[in-house]
Computed example of a mutant assay.
Amino acid sequence: MKSFVKHIIFKFALKFFMGLGRILGKKQLITVSSFLGSLLYSLSWKRKNVAFDNLKIAFEQQYKESELKKVLKKFIQEIILTALEIAFIVKKKEKLAQWAKVSGIEHLDEALKKRKGIIALSAHLGNIPVMLAWLAEKGYPVAVLFKEGKYLPEGFLYNLIKSYKIYPIPFRSDREVPKEIISALNKNMIVFILADQARPGIYAKFFGKYVQCQKGAFVIAQRKGSPLVPIFIVRGENGHEIKIYPEIELQKQVEILIEKYNCLLEELIRKYPEQYYWFHRRFKRMRVH
C-alpha cells in the first residue's frame, strides 16, 4: 500500500513539473522553485530529516545548526529548480548551448585521443542532465550509467536519455553492468558514472569520515587502461558551469584513486553545499580508521 501511494505521488509530481515546464518562462523558474521549496521545507517528511542528518555529519565543525537549516532550505529549493529546468528544457525543446559554460574541455579532448574510452567520474551534484545533454549536443559520444527511478513510469529515464542522443546503460546487476561499460569504452565513448553513493566495495575518506565507496569504475579503468576524468556541474553566478579536471593518473591502489576523486568532490560540495544531493544515506556505514 505504501509503495502504491508513493507511485501515485511521483506520477502526480511528474505531471505537475512537466506542466509547469510547459507554461513557465525561463525567468520564472527561480521564483516558483523558491516558493515551492520553502513550502516543502516547512513540512515534516522522512527524506528531509535524512538530508539534515547528513549535513550535520559533513559540516559538524563548520556550521551552526541554524546555518545548516538555511543550507537545507536552499538545497530543497535547488532540487525543485533542477526539476523545473529539466521540464522546461524538455517541453520547450531548448538547445543547451546557452545553459552552461565549460572549463577544462581540453582534458576531455586529450583523453579521447588515447582511443580507450573515458570513464567520466561525476556525482549527484548540480543539474546532471544539463551537463550530459550539453556535451552530447556538442557532438561528444556520451554514455551514462543510470538506474530507473523506482516510482517513475517504466522506461522514463531511458527514453529521456536516448532522446538527447546519449547512450543509456541501465543498471541491472553488478555482473552485467561492467560488460556494457566496457562495450561503450571500446567504442571510445565517454561513460559517465556517478561514483558518490555508498555501496559495498571499499572504505575511503570523505568529509573526514571513512565511508563505503563504490570501486567498480576505478577497477574497470585499471583493467582497461581507460582515462579517469572527473567531470562535475555546478550552478554559478552566471549559470551552469561544467568543470572538467585533468585525468587522475592510474595507480595500483584503488583507495588512492577513490580518495583523489572524493577530495575533488568534497571541495566542490564545501563551496556549493546546497547543490549536493543530501537525500542519499551517504554516511550510513562509517568505519573508525
Rank of each mutant, 00 (worst) to 15 (best):
Q61C: 02
K69E: 14
I86G: 09
L160T: 09
I169M: 07
I166W: 10
Y164L: 11
P153G: 04
V102R: 00
E94N: 10
I118G: 02
E106K: 02
K116P: 09
I161M: 07
Y151K: 13
L68W: 05
P141N: 10
E180V: 09
E94P: 00
A136Y: 13
I119A: 00
L135D: 01
A87H: 05
A83P: 04
E94S: 14
P168E: 07
L96W: 10
L84S: 11
L81S: 09
I128R: 03
L68G: 07
K69S: 06
E110M: 13
L135E: 00
E67K: 08
Y167D: 06
Y158P: 00
I89Q: 02
Q98M: 12
I86T: 12
V177A: 13
I166M: 06
I118D: 01
R172G: 12
I169P: 05
L72I: 03
K64C: 06
E180Q: 15
K101D: 11
N159Y: 06
S103C: 07
S122F: 04
E67A: 10
A136H: 12
L152G: 02
L112I: 04
S66R: 15
L152M: 12
L72W: 07
W134M: 02
E78K: 13
I105P: 00
E78A: 14
E67V: 05
I118P: 02
I76H: 09
K70G: 06
V71K: 01
E65W: 07
